[in-house]
């Protein structure tokens, strides 16, 4: 039962939001990609978050040994799954394009840049909130340490 656990929880939040931001920037970068190793156009990816009770393995083992498990386990967050958008690709008429089909249509990823930009802002704000939590907890720990002086 120490404040250091809270740092692990916030770190898990930062890591999850970072993963989400990475996927969103990947989506924006690939908004016009028509070729992928799996074949067909790029498909939009997104992260699914899930509560994770094992963010601080050291603390959980330590508390199990000392019988000091207060608070019923701290809930961190983790990326449970990365979903791939299975909507039909957007078909644009571009007969000169090397990936055009027999009718002259090219399958482009169904990506709405506005949607991804808004999600990206959400991820950035979520990251900032976790950084603020780290700063607040760090101050509390520092004040406790200052009691020794």
């Amino acid at each position: 039962m120490s404040l250091f656990d809270a740092l692990s929880v916030s770190a898990s939040g930062m890591s999850a939001q970072r993963t989400r931001a990475e996927l969103l920037t990947e989506n924006l970068a690939n908004a016009e990609t028509t070729r992928t190793p799996e074949g067909g156009p790029y498909r939009r990816k997104d992260a699914v978050f899930a509560t994770d009770y094992g963010v601080s393995p050291f603390a959980s083992v330590f508390e199990a040994q000392t019988g000091d498990g207060a608070g019923g386990g701290l809930a961190g967050v983790g990326v449970a799954d990365i979903t791939v958008d299975n909507r039909e690709p957007e078909r644009r008429y571009q007969p000169g394009h090397p990936d055009a089909d027999a009718e002259g249509y090219v399958a482009f990823p169904r990506i709405n840049p506005a949607e991804d930009m808004v999600d990206l802002m959400g991820a950035a704000r979520g990251y900032e909130a976790n950084v603020a939590a780290v700063a607040a907890v760090k101050d509390m720990i520092q004040h406790s340490i200052d009691l020794f002086h």
Binding site: M1, F49, L74, V77, A129, N130, V137, M140, S144
Partner: peptide, 26 residues
Amino acid sequence: MDLLSVRQKLVASNIANADTPGYKTR
């Protein structure tokens, strides 16, 4: 101080899970 640390840990936990579907504030 002990209670404040417990509460602060829960707040950190809530902030980390601000985007987790189905998560309820603790």
